[in-house]
């Protein structure tokens, strides 16, 4: 028996990186999974890689758009009959910059992508979960949800904000069968970090992409990046029935980076 037998999960941004790691781990524990992403081709490939359509489905759309996030919940319930685990995982930056150079466009994008997406998805998922009196909501926050780095103002702001949202919402549903937790990974060298990291390094005033990786790992106790599998293992644990008494937790997966 897997730990998530009979459960249905939906994951924003689940075709690769952390979301994909969660999807793979949930499948291994017996769940059915809907993953989301912008590119239908990548989605179809991911579904095939994960074992085909019996237990995996793809929902196309940009996670920074309300219609996508709310549509993902509706699609999951239509397709697999229920929603037990909502992973609000998608997020990142495109053209980050220090505050004095930050454009309104980038700021609004990060607010929509990292914060509003979590709010829209949480609200919609709760509307489905509350009548059933059961559910798990996992928010992929970041070590930057507690710390701060030069050149990442939007990311720091939105990741702090989702932690606040998790604390408030977890208290609202604390006596129901629903838990809401944040995962706070340290830097993981995912596809998106490789893609946007060089520009982010410039915004952070660093010489190179490698210098950015070094900055993050130097702050940790393990002196290396975290891995997708480490985050996925915590996600499985928090998604399981056994974790019913863990809620409102900012769960660090950061190799000893955060001071609290």
């Amino acid at each position: 028996m897997g730990k998530l037998e009979g459960k249905v999960a939906a994951i924003t941004g689940g075709t690769r990186s952390i979301g994909r790691g969660m999807a793979d781990a949930f499948l291994a524990e017996g769940a059915k999974v809907v993953v989301n992403g912008r590119d239908p081709e990548k989605g179809a490939a991911a579904v095939a890689e994960m074992g085909g359509p019996d237990r995996v489905a793809f929902f196309a759309g940009d996670a920074s758009k309300q219609a996508t996030v709310e549509g993902l919940v509706d699609f999951t319930v239509d397709h697999f009959g229920q929603l037990d685990i909502m992973c609000l995982n998608s997020g990142g930056v495109i053209n980050t910059a220090p505050v004095f150079m930050m454009t309104d466009e980038e700021w609004n994008l990060e607010i929509d992508w990292n914060l509003n997406h979590v709010f829209w998805g949480m609200r919609k998922a709760l509307q489905h979960m509350m009548p059933r009196d059961t559910g798990r909501i996992l928010v992929t926050s970041s070590v930057e949800g507690k710390a701060g780095k030069a050149g990442l103002p939007g990311y720091n702001t939105t990741k702090h904000a989702v932690n606040g949202l998790v604390k408030a919402a977890s208290k609202e549903v604390g006596t129901t069968g629903i838990t809401i937790n944040s995962l706070l990974p340290g830097l993981i060298e995912t596809d998106i970090v490789r893609a946007t990291g060089p520009d982010s390094a410039v915004a952070m005033g660093l010489e190179s992409y490698q210098a950015m990786l070094d900055l993050f790992t130097k702050e940790s106790a393990i002196k290396k990046c975290n891995t997708v599998e480490q985050v996925a293992a915590v996600a499985v644990m928090l998604a399981s029935d056994a974790a019913r008494n863990i809620t409102g937790c900012m769960f660090p997966i950061d190799g000893g980076t955060l001071p609290y």
Binding site: G174, G186, A233, V234, M237, A242, F251, I253, T257, Y260
Partner: peptide, 28 residues
């Protein structure tokens, strides 16, 4: 059992990336 659940995770290979953490198992 809540505490044992997290202890098992930390003891596992996947726990390699979690250190120096003060993990709340306190129902919020």
């Amino acid at each position: 059992e809540d505490v044992a659940l997290v202890a098992s995770l930390l003891a596992s290979e996947a726990g390699a990336g979690i250190t120096g953490s003060l993990i709340s198992i306190d129902g919020g």
